[in-house]
Design a binder for these strands. Structure first.
Length: 137
DNA sequence: GCCAACGTTGGC
DNA sequence: GCCAACGTTGGC
């Protein structure tokens, strides 16, 4: 099963807010990049991803699940981009910082390192297991 | 279709 | 606050 990584600045949308949204989840609005869009379109209900705090925090802090597949993003006036709905699944007992990811040789090829500006990223099975382990799961 | 100018992201 | 990386826009 594919895995993903979603980036958000906590000042805009934080893990705590995602948790507070509960089982109903929330739409992941605001993606305006074609590669990120492609990843959103590939997502299926039940797939999981990491929730990453960019800028303020710079750490993987939790795990989310896709609960609704790709549909139009009403916040996009051009109508070209869409979104999925996500819900919080569980926090990482220990957030995995960007520094910790960089310090792990097995994670050197993570998209988070290689293409740091991409806001929705694929995560390989090996990367998924390694980050979970670093996070105490 | 090319590419310079510009805007945004995100680490530092 | 700076700036490198990268994506988008628009003139030609």
């Amino acid at each position: 099963m594919p895995h993903w990584l979603f980036k958000s600045e906590p000042s805009a949308w934080s893990w705590d807010e995602q948790v507070a949204a509960g089982e109903a989840g929330t739409p992941w609005t605001g993606v305006r990049n074609h590669l990120a869009k492609k990843h959103l379109q590939a997502m299926r209900v039940g797939e999981r991803g990491f929730f990453y705090h960019s800028n303020d925090g710079k750490a993987v802090v939790g795990i989310v699940a896709v609960i609704r597949e790709y549909y139009p993003d009403h916040t996009d006036p051009s109508g070209r981009f869409g979104m999925v709905d996500l819900k919080a699944v569980e926090p990482l007992p220990r957030p995995v910082t960007l520094d910790a990811v960089k310090a792990e040789p097995d994670l050197a090829d993570m998209v988070l390192i290689r293409n740091s500006r991409l806001s929705v990223q694929p995560v390989t099975e090996a990367e998924w297991r390694a980050v979970r382990r670093l996070g105490g799961l």
